[in-house]
Design a protein around this nucleic acid. Structure first.
Lengths: 227, 227
DNA sequence: CAGCTGCTCAAGTGACTGCTTGACAAGGTA
DNA sequence: TACCTTGTCAAGCAGTCACTTGAGCAGCTG
């Protein structure tokens, strides 16, 4: 007890958890899985990798205990092992945002300039939902909406947005604003949606973060029965 | 904007932060630096590695933004970039504790059986400090005590414990208990101290975690002026 | 049963990591 | 000035990782 080999082995154990997140592709998987469970081809599609490689990364994550699986017929559904994993992912992003010297640049390259799109905080959105001044739009892919979403939100996946934009706009009362949300602060879907809505002349902003943060803040959600 | 390469680059950026923690030796460094700043040979000594290798790991951590340096004459002091890094370290340990299948085993191999040593929570220790029923002993190395410690604690580094045990015991009033603390929940110093004190027939327990957790909980500390 | 879908596994390649040794640079001291 | 201390850097080796291709296996469906 208390010797060097045992200490090294223990800290190597902690490092295994960090190692699981130490790949951009696995980080993307965690970001998607934080929305709810998904099966392998969907995940492969989300991260633009082969099914074999995605399967390999998922097994790496499972080996470190970050995700678990559930079989349903021929499909295997992966999900985060617990909310703690989502907390770890949030902590990683926070440290990167605060201390990684090039992160702003990388985020801007992916999301575009953020200053032009004023954001809505969770608290402000909650107040405006209560007073009915807002239409909340979930622009994530449909499976993510199905497995859980902000209570009053309607689903308009960003891929279908141009097709359904006219419908959406007719449902927005005068004086109300559209607020779009997606996976989190570094998800591009909401920004894309906000730009599209604004291009058609209506007011729109994005929520500052996404569904996982809303849910973990204890704000009202609707969840699928099985997920 | 919004394209695959930019998304990969952004998530690779997040992964760089995780990669920095993805080595047992670097994790040990973070655990030590969470106590306060230290210079390179001290750190090399703590993790039982060569100065060259320790310097290499520290530069890796600095490259990811997790630590910063301060020059003082010929010495270079390293410290955590902010409390966020300590939060990330805590989140990593929590996930490992909850989901890593062999972590309990590794922790037991290093710390010994925990059940035999009943632990004191922060809240309970705070109450007992107020009622004066307790002598709080900081068993970390002296530099860590100097850069910050629990307000009423006295320093008895575990290396010096056998030499100072008699002194310590004479200062403990009848009916009072010794509570030892060190770096955190996976630090062996406090357990070792508790066993030594108990072997001499006095009551002793360890604090459930360590100084960084106490400090971040906003409980009373004394800090060095310069650190 | 055969054939299909959904996923995993194995082998192979190029790139990176962790550690060692030994040389070197920056700053302080005599 | 020369010399010491402290820390970094470079080369080199063994081990590991990310991704590809192609094979294989479990469980449905006809």
């Amino acid at each position: 007890m208390g010797d060097r080999d045992a200490k090294d082995a223990l800290f190597d154990g902690f490092a295994e958890v960090a190692k699981a997140l130490a790949s951009g592709r696995r980080a993307e998987l965690i970001d998607v899985l934080a929305q709810g469970e998904r099966h392998v081809d969907e995940l492969a599609d989300e991260i633009d990798q082969s099914v074999a490689n995605t399967s390999f990364h998922l097994r790496t994550l499972a080996g470190a205990g970050l995700v678990t699986t559930r079989r349903d017929g021929t499909r295997i559904h992966y999900r985060l092992a617990s909310d703690r994993v989502a907390d770890l992912w949030t902590a990683t992003r926070d440290v990167a945002a605060a201390h990684h010297e090039r992160l702003d640049e990388l985020a801007t390259a992916y999301l575009g300039e953020l200053d032009e799109l004023e954001q809505v905080t969770r608290d402000e959105l909650m107040r405006r939902i209560d007073t009915g001044e807002v239409v909340v739009v979930d622009v994530r892919p449909a499976p993510e909406y199905r497995s859980g979403h902000i209570a009053v939100a309607r689903s308009v996946p960003v891929d279908d947005l141009t097709a359904h934009l006219a419908d959406l706009l007719t449902d927005v009362p005068d004086g109300a604003e559209i607020v779009a949300y997606c996976r989190g602060p570094y998800c591009a879907f909401a920004d894309e949606a906000v730009r599209a809505v604004r291009a058609s002349g209506r007011a729109a902003r994005r929520l500052e973060d996404g569904f996982p943060e809303w849910h973990r803040a204890g704000l009202p959600v609707e969840r699928a029965h099985s997920a």
